[in-house]
Amino acid sequence: MRFVVCGEALIDLMPEEVISPEESRWIARSGGGPLNSAAALSRLGQDTYFLGRLSSDAFGDQLRSHLEAAGVNLELAVDTDDPTSVAVVSLDGEGKASYTFHFDGTSNFNWKPEEFPTLEADDWLHFGSIGSVLGPGARHMLDFVSRTEAAISFDINVRPSTLPDRAEYFRLVSDLMAAVGRGAGIVKASDEDIAWLVDDEENPLGYAQAWAEEYGLAMFIVTLGPDGVAAVRPDGRVVQVPGHKVEVVDTVGAGDTFMAGFLSAYADDPSDLEGALERGAAAAAIVVTRQGAKPPTSAELDDYLA
């Protein structure tokens, strides 16, 4: 099976050191949810293609190098002269990341219809995050997802600062869930994503079940932070696995790496949903012990699970 991961690749500017009141030092890390998932899938041994728009600027060169070093195929990537998108990362005392984005006129949001390929039924399309809801290209991504014959998974990955209007954000996400549901696909969100979208912190699994039923999804996966992850079927059946107690350095790439770990196992054996969730949770546990989104290899994940 070929995985095609569609969405943004950007630069995460992460704080390193305050030198003086006038000067600070930052690290420019390759990032973006889809880029992280593509790199993680490839490091886990999957045949992975990145379908994203990569700039001709220096940051774009870095993103290409990062993907290539992870073994990701760039034949489907789109070359553009639009500048690379940038996210400024802030970490709280527990290593939890928040983001301020600089996106206007940048590479990830100007998709054109002709830039999307035709995928086959034996491909797996994974997409999501900011590029699926923002910019003039978002409607073209929706059209692409709606017509593809590939198996589909969608990571909602809400970023409220990019679109503070909850109702509009939810409308866009609903259209994408409906498109995924036409192929009986999979949607994933964190419990915090769901709480923000519906302005209700109670019962995220209840919302997941309702959406799985309404949109015809195969399942809705909800990550629960340290409490693990649950997959909810449209009929209300729930498969849940616990989280892992680890020393968290930062949470950058945790959800993206979970999806890679989950998909790499689930695509091979859909009958073992619990095992796929466990593999995803373990992959996420490894990545949060590292600075930045540095996903494990298949061998590292096997050793951790053993």
Score class of each variant (00 low, 15 high):
Ala293Arg: 05
Pro234Asp: 11
Pro83Tyr: 05
Trp26Gly: 01
Ser20Asn: 12
Phe144Glu: 13
Tyr215Asp: 07
Tyr215Gly: 01
Arg171Asn: 03
Val287Cys: 02
Ser30Trp: 13
Ala40Pro: 03
Ala306Ser: 15
Thr289Leu: 00
Glu168Asn: 07
Thr223Cys: 01
Ala218Ile: 04
Glu274Trp: 04
Asp104Val: 14
Gly33Arg: 03
Gly185Met: 04
Ser85Leu: 08
Ala281Arg: 00
Ala58Met: 06
Ala39Pro: 02
Glu17Arg: 15
Leu54Ala: 06
Gly31Lys: 05
Val246His: 06
Val5Leu: 14
Ser107Thr: 01
Val249Leu: 06
Ser132Val: 11
Gln62Ile: 15
Arg29Val: 10
Met177Trp: 11
Ser161Phe: 10
Tyr304Glu: 01
Leu273Val: 12
Ser85Arg: 00
Arg182Glu: 14
Val187Gln: 00
Ser132Lys: 07
Ala9Lys: 00
His102Tyr: 15
Ser42Ala: 14
Asp227Met: 11
Phe50Gly: 07
Asn203Trp: 02
Gly31Tyr: 00
Met141Gln: 12
Leu35Thr: 09
Thr118Ile: 12
Leu67Val: 08
Leu263Gly: 00
Glu120Pro: 05
Lys294Ala: 08
Asn110Phe: 09
Pro160Glu: 11
Gly261Tyr: 07
Gly45Lys: 00
Asp272Gly: 09
Ala218Thr: 12
Pro204Asp: 10
Glu278Thr: 01
Arg182Trp: 03
Ala87Val: 04
Glu68Asn: 12
Val89Glu: 09
Ala77Phe: 15
Leu91Tyr: 11
Gly93Phe: 10
Ala276Asp: 00
Leu41Ser: 03
Thr257His: 04
Glu120Tyr: 14
Asp256Pro: 08
Leu76His: 03
Phe127Trp: 09
Leu125Trp: 07
Arg53His: 02
Arg64Leu: 10
Pro21Val: 10
Arg279Thr: 00
Met259Asn: 07
Gln240Ala: 12
Gly292Cys: 05
Trp111Thr: 04
Thr162Ala: 14
Val222Pro: 01
Asp250Cys: 05
Asp268Trp: 07
Leu172Val: 09
Thr48Glu: 03
Pro204Leu: 01
Phe59Lys: 02
Ser161Tyr: 07
Leu74Glu: 08
Asp155Ile: 02
Phe154Ala: 08
Asp82Cys: 13
Gly33His: 05
Ala77Arg: 10
Leu51Tyr: 06
Ser107Lys: 02
Phe127Arg: 01
Ala210Tyr: 05
Val287Asn: 04
Met1Pro: 11
Lys245Val: 08
Arg166Glu: 13
